[in-house]
């Protein structure tokens, strides 16, 4: 039902004035400022003046920062793959549960998903610590001689990021797997396929679009992680997001931080775009 604009449409458009001001003033303008600032002149004093200076992009391409960007992309990609591998069978089983059990799990997963990254990093820091960590459990079980610290390390960053991403992966796969036509599975089993074979030949191909869009979301989410790499890793494990914060707040170099933010934006946008294009036609 799309009534064509008429005399009454003026009143309708009037209600859109406050939201337009809000979105224009506090999203479109701040967002444009990033692009403008990324080509601004940085002054010795730490301030900057708007202009057209490509020095910050040149610095990005000729310094260690381009390596950090590649590292961030590879890390986010790995986290996306690992969390989907863990989440897919889990969500598949979850959708087969009774409504009550399913809802309890969904509530817990939503609650964990919303938990501040600061708190998640803190929890894993304790679990990886020498005094109160999981190595104490191994000592108690007689596997290890004495407890030791597992963080900061690359493994700690990886585990922390998977923990951060897993609830998202489950919730993103949940709709597609809930709507999965169970009669397809029954048909496959009636025809003599084992549950494992059914899973690989029926369930997995049907869920391809959900897996792809879930992967993209986890990729972008991991690109945005800021606390876990800082708390559980060494400076060598820092991602682009951490480096942007570092440049903006601790080095007062807003133009360079902005240039890095534009790069991060392009990286996220490119992945979203390419995958959206690959996924066209399939799915709904």
């Amino acid at each position: 039902m799309s009534d064509q604009p008429s005399s009454a449409s003026f009143g309708r458009l009037l209600t859109l004035v406050p939201p337009s001001i809000a979105i224009g003033l506090f999203f479109v303008i701040p967002f444009s400022l990033i692009v403008l600032s990324s080509v601004a002149h940085q002054l010795q004093s730490g301030d900057f003046v708007f202009g057209f200076d490509t020095a910050h992009y040149e610095r990005f391409f000729t310094s260690i920062f381009i390596g950090r960007a590649v590292y961030s992309a590879i890390l986010s990609f790995s986290i996306a793959v690992i969390s989907l591998l863990i989440a897919f069978p889990f969500t598949y089983v979850l959708t087969g549960f009774s409504k009550r059990t399913r809802t309890i799990w969904l509530v817990y997963i939503l609650a964990q998903l919303s938990l501040s990254e600061v708190l998640i990093a803190f929890s894993w820091q304790i679990l990886f610590s020498r005094t109160a960590g999981i190595t104490n459990l191994a000592v108690w079980l007689g596997v290890l001689d004495k407890p030791f610290s597992l963080a900061p390390s690359a493994l700690a960053v990886l585990v922390g990021l998977v923990y951060l991403a897993l609830p998202f992966a489950v919730l993103l796969l949940f709709p597609a797997l809930s709507r999965l036509d169970r009669s397809l599975i029954e048909a496959s089993q009636t025809l003599g396929a084992s549950p494992v074979r059914t899973f690989f030949t029926v369930v997995l191909p049907v869920s391809r679009p959900a897996l792809i869009s879930g992967g993209v979301t986890v990729f972008v989410l991991t690109l945005g992680a800021i606390i876990v790499p800082q708390v559980l890793g060494r400076p060598g494990h820092w991602t682009l997001s951490v480096l942007i914060t570092d440049q903006a707040i601790y080095n007062s170099n807003m133009p360079f931080a902005s240039a890095l933010a534009v790069i991060l934006l392009l990286m996220s946008g490119a992945v979203i775009g390419v995958v959206g294009w690959l996924n066209r036609g399939s799915g709904k």
Binding site: P30, A257, S258, A261
Partner: peptide, 21 residues
């Protein structure tokens, strides 16, 4: 669509945008 966009991007981008603004 404009209203949904900030939530999809890595949060540090909007954080920097607000800091500049």
């Amino acid at each position: 669509s404009l209203g949904i966009a900030p939530f999809i991007l890595p949060p540090v981008i909007m954080a920097l945008a607000f800091l500049l603004f």
